[in-house]
Amino acid sequence: MTNTATRLFFAVVALQMAGLVVFAAVKQYAVATGTEVILQGAPVDPRSLMQGDYAILDYEIAVVPEDMKTEFAVGDDVIVVLIKKDEVWEAIRYLNDDRVPKGNGEVFVRGRMQSNGRIDFGIGTYFVPEGTGWEIERAQDLKIRVSVNDDGDATVTGVIVDGEDFSP
């Protein structure tokens, strides 16, 4: 291998590692600086070959009210404005423009309208250690801890199963 090829090889390896670190750092920054909200959810329990067992999370706020459904086409960005009521954050407005100013104590989360009439927020997956997914699947009440940054991008940080933080 020539010197140039050697330099290129290690440059690519360094870029790969930098990419991994940046990927982790960006996600961690979003979690660390975001506002934590708790959402009401419902689970299913399958397995991924690459990442193992996970729970599919569904959200009450993913359903657009009937009278507003015509305002969003499939594939449109949907901005859901949340406000805290008791422990859980609930949707109070569904918008298609994130430039609308937020009210006091409000947080907005961004999603995309799906063909099944629900909004996908990119937070439909919660990975669990092998063989523990049934605890979430059998939950009577499931709430999800979500960190939402200023752009409305959300990351799942934990789940609350029947009133207790999930810790298998």
């Binding site: 996600k27 990442q51 439909g124 997956t125 919660y126």
Partner: peptide, 18 residues
């Protein structure tokens, strides 16, 4: 292993499966 690392980070931050 590079691919496994990508998927591990995605798993750790509950990035959508697939």
């Amino acid at each position: 292993l590079f691919g496994a690392s990508i998927h591990l980070i995605a798993q750790s931050f509950n990035v959508e499966v697939n």
